[in-house]
């Protein structure tokens, strides 16, 4: 999507995503603090639930549209909607096109899509922020999170993180490979999904990073869930949390 087609501005809405609503409140909090730091006023519409991706990836597009229509109604398309997730924002910007392909309200879904942004993409391409202040002393391996392919999310996250004083982004092998979550794939293909996750953990942690970072908590939930069961936890942070910690360290 061209930057010029997209809705930007500093009056923003947060779509926290269902995973941050249920498990990862710290990520949603960090997102609010990061957005406020760059001068945004953040609203959190009460009626929000989920983007509809679980049903979409399962092939149930009637259910997808039911949830997507609710989401389109809940958010105001004249203001940017920010998501701390590459996957959910990809769902809205690409998945809705497919799910509404033959529907009368395709344009409503597309209008909302033009106002939706993943956090890092918004900071860099929506607001034009090139570097991030503060300090964070850590070696970080940043998982790419597959649904950011073809979007500006990963490059934006790398741009911001690498500009933070003290941050060292480390390269690791097979960075193009998926963690194995894949929504309902993780339960329909439990063996393959877990094997992929174990391999991913091995690669992400090979160089002993201080932090494993991600732009998506879904990948993180899967990876840390496996690591936890194996009794070999690693420190994990969402990119918003790293940005927030850097700010706090500056104060």
């Amino acid at each position: 999507m061209l930057a010029t087609d997209r809705v930007t501005g500093t009056q923003v809405q947060l779509m926290m995503t269902c995973l941050c609503d249920t498990f990862f409140d710290s990520v949603a909090q960090a997102t609010v603090e990061v957005l406020e730091h760059v001068g945004c006023t953040v609203e959190v519409p009460e009626a929000q639930t989920c983007c509809g991706q679980p049903a979409f990836n399962s092939g149930d597009w009637d259910s997808t549209r039911k949830v997507a229509r609710h989401t389109c109604r809940t958010f105001d398309s004249s203001k940017p909607t920010i998501l701390p997730s590459g996957s959910c924002s990809h769902m809205i910007s690409h998945g809705y096109d497919l799910a509404f392909e033959k529907e009368d309200d395709l344009s409503t879904a597309q209008t909302f899509a033009k106002s939706s942004w993943e956090l890092c993409d918004f900071l860099v391409n929506g607001l034009g922020i090139e570097s991030w202040p503060g300090r964070f002393d850590a070696k970080i391996s940043l998982h790419r999170s597959c649904h950011t392919r073809g979007t500006q999310t990963y490059q934006s996250a790398v741009k911001l993180l690498s500009s933070i004083e003290g941050v060292e982004l480390i390269e690791f092998d097979e960075s193009e490979q998926c963690c194995g979550f894949g929504g309902t794939f993780s339960v329909a293909y439990p063996n393959t999904s877990v094997s992929m996750g174990k391999l991913k953990i091995e690669k992400l942690t090979a160089d002993k990073p201080d932090i494993v970072g991600a732009v998506d908590m879904a990948c993180m939930m899967h990876l840390s869930g496996i690591a936890n069961k194996q009794g070999r936890q690693f420190n994990k942070l969402h990119v918003s949390e790293i940005l927030m910690k850097a700010l706090r360290n500056a104060k």
């Binding site: 609503d21 409140d25 949603a28 329909a188 439990p190």
Partner: peptide, 20 residues
């Protein structure tokens, strides 16, 4: 299928809404 080899993080439903 999830839980055999994966744990779930602690449930924190609605915590962010309250914080905000």
């Amino acid at each position: 299928a999830w839980a055999k080899e994966r744990s779930l993080p602690p449930f924190r439903g609605g915590k962010f809404r309250k914080w905000f």
